[in-house]
Design a protein around this nucleic acid. Sequence first.
DNA 1: CACCAGATTAAACACTCGTTCAACCGGCCG
DNA 2: CGGCCGGTTGAACGAGTGTTTAATCTGGTG
Lengths: 234, 234
Amino acid sequence: MTSLGGASEERGGELATASRIRDAAIARFGRDGFRAGLRTIAADAGVTAGLIVHHFGSKDGLRRACDERVLEFMRREKKKALTDGTGTMLLAQMAQVEQFAPMVLYLLRSMQAGGELAAELIEHMISDAEAYLSAGEAAGVVRPSRDRAARTRYLAYQATGSMLLWFTLHGGDAEPEKFPALFRRYMDELTLPALELFTEGLLVDRSMLDEYLMYVPDPPSAASNAADQDGTAS
Amino acid sequence: MTSLGGASEERGGELATASRIRDAAIARFGRDGFRAGLRTIAADAGVTAGLIVHHFGSKDGLRRACDERVLEFMRREKKKALTDGTGTMLLAQMAQVEQFAPMVLYLLRSMQAGGELAAELIEHMISDAEAYLSAGEAAGVVRPSRDRAARTRYLAYQATGSMLLWFTLHGGDAEPEKFPALFRRYMDELTLPALELFTEGLLVDRSMLDEYLMYVPDPPSAASNAADQDGTAS
DNA sequence: CACCAGATTAAACACTCGTTCAACCGGCCG
DNA sequence: CGGCCGGTTGAACGAGTGTTTAATCTGGTG
């Protein structure tokens, strides 16, 4: 309510119908996945299926609207808590707020299904991690890496992917009520091993790393984000 | 072919029809996901949709048969290369073999969708990691952990989840031809940061870990797999 | 050969899906 | 008042889905 950054919609006394449909779609998609039918969403919003396509053109148009909404929400919320921690913690925080939980669920479904939103999401996660790690490096609490970009991507993928997998397995039902508790359980299980690994590592000696470093010439120059599709090797 | 452990099927000169259907289903499910239609699978196997349900009872029965097949395959293959490395590397190896690639793809789809096979799979991954880490610990190359089970689960979820996410985003098309190359690219991007993190850690000092250890009493006894739903703290 | 059991097929059934269409209703403007 | 126009509805359509059913083909056995 009282959307602070609301640009050009839902200014009326009650929610505009289109926004209501879109929010219902986010909640329903988050709950049931994207195979949820238009009629179900319509019933949730108190309208008819035909009206949805009248407003959004098609089911895909509705999904794009949902994506846009969630993405804008993410951008807005990120600014408020940038210094706080990794993207996973940000998501965990947001999931605690009852109003935001459907968005987080929708995000998880998006990453489960792949697609544009998911790609953009992981890019956000990476840039978050980049900022976080850079700040830590500058402050002297994070070790420098031989390939900063690669490490950033690695950490973001690990954190996001394991969270996604955890919820796919343990939260398949995806009831929005149990959702915050699930998130807390995940963080509880996670925190100690993560901190342990981050401070002490896993291996006692450097032989594996040194071996690898001897094997490959120098990592940081090659293997960036530009378009190299296939490796040279067969 | 020449299934060494084949118990009671496909002993004839050519593939039995049921097996052919099942293999086609594995390939098609891996390629298109589980929303692939029975008629498509039937066409792949050169039969009719009705025959599939005649042999497997229902689409769900077919999926169960596929799950069983893939799981048995995993068990068999795991024995052959247990000492080699983590479950991720095992999957990467198998994906290189053209004949096994469809199974790996099917596995990825399963974890994407959740369900029983996925749960059993991650349990395999965890037990693999357990064996691998225990051996490393005994050999003196892996540091001991304050909570071994939690660390094992953590590492297994991270490795598996990040791989799943990576393929969801970069391999959505899922053509079995480009699949081994994708896997190689994933490993290439991954290896350096992983080794770095495993040998050197991420943080320079122990303050975060010590703070956390001071905050929670003792991790290894509590917080197991039994049913504790909500924490005592508000 | 007769007969039966299983494999296999083509068609039909019941259902859901996204989308389309014609109609209706309520304001707003001329 | 008349007319238009966007919001909204309910019914219909066509293309899918999984499943069922009756019929056909095939091979082995008494």
